[in-house]
Nucleic acid binder design. Structure first.
Length: 561
RNA sequence: GUCCCUGUAGCUCAGCUGGACAGAGCAGCUGCCUUCUAAGCAGCGGGUCGAGCGUUCGAAUCGCUCCAGGGACGCCA
């Protein structure tokens, strides 16, 4: 599908170009001294009276040029040729130039949005660049909790944004299916399995004590009977562990699907050993002089790359650390699969891992800039103000599943998405439920449902509006709504550039506000047939914009509420 | 001790690639349902943007120093 070039982004570029050319022309004619011209940028003014776009270019130029900013603004403005799309170009103190779209251009965008349809909001920022985004990647040794939910929602929304921003995105879940914790998991599960058969088995001290392990063991007992107790213990642990692991993974998959999160690839850590890539990258690092042996273990010499300490990659017992397989994994991403950009979303507890991972990426000859790590900060779960522990190893936790069941998937997604990954968040379930009446989630969806209701009525009355004349849209609420709808491509651009999908939630509320206000002030289905048709076009285009935004956030679009 | 994140209205948070009098939701207070959904609209009140210094024509935004909260510093992942 070929993305439709955004009219908004192209008119923005035209404004920038016209400013640039006017400045050059001013210099040629001697009105402006020959000083280096910085790159012109335009921004969106906060106040509507300052127009649709504004530049502070004259202010930036003033010092070097030795002229008053206002004078420069006047000179440049005088040299910008007329454009029917721009109704007004105004100079404002202390030296801004403000541009206001013409109503003709604005209203025409309604038709543009309608013809773009589902592709409205798509931009060509990524130019097909191959991006891998890896997130969640929770050890399959326990159920997902709310912190994982946050990462999952962040990752899936970011992937959607990057996708419509023109990147070739691949979503991946890295399954830690080998190593220490899997061993502990298997031993714990086998102990629980024996217990479920009435055998007095002892849980390993490093084991997983959550109730889900007891249920899991019982499930295996019910399905497979007592056949495993006759095997030698290591064999039995391994087999029971394998079954348990598969069950855990499928449970995680189900929870994520319920949350509206899915992956293109489920990548097995174990496969890195099976296909030899782990040994390959280790010998590569060794050849590069990045490894050293001391205290009978093998270390990655990160101090040589500016880190404050070295890190073990192979333990004295010969087993690989988590860091070591992560090196192989990133080698696989960059070298074997040739991703041009890799985004990892990790929890706050992995924050110390970032710089050594970048160092190692550098050591295997990859520009560390190609690896982008987003740290999603902690979620503190509360219930009526009381703190709920999140530790996976100790007993009972509130799972993501329970939270989803209690507050609803849409609300979950919106709440988690509404905060930037950088800030810790308190998630009080009682509050989330209590506030659900006056929730921003419903506010946005309600706007959508109202739109659907209008279009239903129009259909009932058999009003066809394909030939509506959008130039009849002239009142303030109508034009404000159009202006808000136009921003979507810029929001997509912003979210993709900063990797911050939380902007979407604020945009969604903005557009809902503009619509609710329009709805209150402008009757759509009426006897004034030409106006009715024009407004139906506006409403239909608003539906597209709202649907697109909600879908990007992974939320549902209810036709009625 | 070192490193990372955060500190903006009573509460939860946007804004932070410097720009025009600091924003939203919730909570509080006023009004508005004979017409497409009042889960809505219109309005009011509420902030020394943690503190200080600096850079700049201009700082919530950049730099430095403090203070406070959270997290990380394992041959765990």
């Amino acid at each position: 599908m070929e993305p439709v070039l955004s009219e908004l982004l192209s008119i923005r570029q035209k404004i920038i170009d016209s400013l640039q050319r006017a400045a050059v022309r001013a210099q040629k004619s001697g009105k402006l001294p020959q000083v280096p011209l910085s790159r012109v940028s335009v921004e969106r003014p906060q106040k509507p009276e300052h127009g649709d776009y504004a530049t502070s270019f004259p202010l930036k130029l003033a010092r070097a040029a030795g002229l008053k900013p206002l004078a420069i603004a006047e000179i440049i403005t005088g040299l910008i040729p007329g454009n029917p799309d721009i109704a007004n170009i105004a100079v404002a103190p202390p030296g801004f130039i403000n541009f206001t779209f013409s109503n003709e251009w604005l209203t025409h965008q309604v038709d543009n949005i309608l013809s773009a349809g589902d592709t409205y909001g798509n931009i060509e920022l990524g130019k097909g660049k191959r991006v891998q985004i890896e997130f969640v990647s929770v050890n399959p040794t326990g159920p997902l909790h709310v912190g994982h939910g946050r990462g999952a929602i962040l990752g899936s929304a970011l992937a959607s944004v990057l996708n419509i921003a023109g990147f070739a995105v691949e979503k991946e879940y890295y399954i830690n299916d080998t190593g220490n914790q899997i061993g502990a998991f298997s031993r714990s599960l086998f102990a629980r399995y024996q217990q479920s058969l009435g055998i007095d088995a002892e849980m390993p001290t490093e084991g997983y004590f959550g109730n889900y392990m007891i249920e899991l063991a019982k499930e295996i007992k019910d399905e497979k009977g007592d056949s495993f107790i006759n095997l030698p213990q290591p064999e039995a642990e391994s087999q029971v562990g394998k079954i348990g692991l598969a069950k855990m993974i499928s449970r995680i998959k189900q929870d994520l699907e319920l949350l509206g999160v899915n992956f293109d690839v489920w990548f097995s850590e174990k496969s890195l050993y099976d296909n030899g890539q782990y040994s390959k990258v280790m010998s590569m690092l060794n050849k590069g002089g990045h490894l050293t042996d001391k205290e009978s273990a093998t270390w990655f010499v990160s101090t040589a790359l500016g880190e404050d300490k070295d890190n073990v990659v192979v333990r004295s017992d010969g087993s690989a650390t988590y860091f070591a397989t992560d090196i192989a994994y990133h080698y696989n991403k960059f070298v074997e699969r040739k991703f041009e950009q890799v985004i990892d979303i990790w929890g706050a507890d992995h924050q110390g891992h970032v710089s050594r991972m970048k160092a190692v990426v550098n050591a295997i000859g990859i520009d560390p800039e190609m690896l982008e790590v987003i740290i999603s900060q902690m979620v503190t779960l509360r219930r009526g103000g009381e703190l709920v522990r999140l530790s996976k190893r100790s007993g009972d936790i509130i799972t993501l599943r329970e939270v989803m069941d209690e507050v609803g998937v849409d609300a979950c997604r919106f709440f988690f998405l509404a905060r930037s990954a950088d800030s810790q968040m308190d998630f009080d379930m009682e509050l989330a439920k209590k506030e659900s009446q006056d929730n921003p989630v419903y506010y946005v969806q309600y706007a959508y449902a109202r739109i659907a209701s209008i279009l239903r009525l129009a259909k009932e009355r058999k009003i066809s509006f394909y030939n509506g004349d959008v130039s009849l849209l002239a009142t303030e609420p109508e034009l404000s709504l159009i202006r808000k709808m136009l921003i979507l491509p810029e929001i997509v651009e912003l979210a993709a550039n900063t990797l911050e999908p939380h902007h979407l939630t604020y945009y969604a509320q903005d557009i809902a506000t503009a619509f609710h206000s329009f709805y209150k002030q402008c009757r759509v289905v009426s006897d004034d047939e030409p106006l009715c048709k024009a407004r139906l076009k506006l409403v239909a285009s608003a539906k597209l914009v709202l649907a697109k935004t909600l879908r990007l956030m992974g939320m549902t679009t209810p036709e009625t509420m």
